[in-house]
Nucleic acid binder design. Structure first.
Lengths: 155, 155
DNA sequence: GAGTTTTTGCAAATGTATTGCATTTAGTAT
DNA sequence: ATACTAAATGCAATACATTTGCAAAAACTC
């Protein structure tokens, strides 16, 4: 269920200016697309949606620059594919603060940003955590429903 | 610092038998290699070490079967590359119990299995976690040392 | 509106992982 | 020991995600 109201939360033009990035059609489109949903979107999905408007390489470069600037955060799904979601306002170029828990559905592979704060971890001597990633794996509600409705045909 | 004493903890032949897997030279070698260190080892590293003895495809298949059987657990590094470490004895085919925290060095990319239990997560309604992965990112002690010794030449 | 710098698109390449199939090997029964 | 059968391996080809180099196009500045 795409949460369209979230779209209003970001202003692509302003966001680009704030971060000293040139305003281009491609960069605006990527932000628009990702902001459509709070669920993280994978690179392949983005490419499927934007592939006719934006070159694949450009998409990769835009995603990388957004991550560097703290505009997007990247979460790897269970298969090692990159997924992206809009960062919270607290994020900056130097430091990401998206310290919420992610849920990765092992059926549809969607990654949900949960409103659960990632617990603080006490590190043993010699290890200094800069960021952490806490991801739970399981079946999301949508997939669980499909499963009960139609026997066992998982996607 | 490879922890050679850990090697004694596993018995490849017994482990294969317990899991109903045929005893082959290749499978034993993979277990031996991974058991050399408590630090997780990446597929590319494994391939570099074993590539002359074992075909790349065979290596992938062995790693997958070990993961399915609960002999190894797989951790994705920050770039989405698969890393493998020996599972705790509690793991089985149905369920992994490697609920410890991982530390992924963003410099050397090594993944350490920490002796820190991953905190329990309360899931919001609709999400049921089967397994969780908690990974902290930062610079490991070894890389931090190299950094101070020799200015800023990382790796 | 011209000039400079950055961004984009295309082609090619790299790296990780999977599939199909013929050959070899392990475990088992003889 | 030997033969049999099922499973595992190696090789070639393929899929997929990501990166690099470079020329053309677009964005900001004066």
């Amino acid at each position: 269920m795409p949460n369209l109201s979230d779209m209003t939360k970001i202003n692509p033009t302003a966001l680009l200016k704030e971060n000293g990035l040139k305003h281009t059609r491609q960069r605006v489109r990527v932000l628009e697309e990702i902001a459509l949903d709070t669920v993280a979107i994978s690179q392949p999905e983005l490419e499927k949606k934007l592939g006719k408007e934006i070159d694949r390489v450009t998409l990769y470069r835009i995603l990388n620059i957004y991550q560097d600037k703290g505009i997007l955060h990247r979460i790897m799904d269970i298969n090692g594919t990159a997924n992206y979601a809009i960062c919270s306002a607290a994020c900056s170029e130097d430091h990401h603060h998206d310290d919420h828990v992610h849920f990765n559905c092992t059926c549809c592979l969607k990654i949900y940003c949960l409103e659960v704060k990632a617990p603080h971890l006490k590190m043993p001597h010699g290890f200094k955590a800069v960021t952490t990633n806490t991801t739970a794996y399981g079946i999301c509600e949508k997939c669980a429903q499909l499963e009960t409705e139609s026997g066992t045909e998982l996607q």
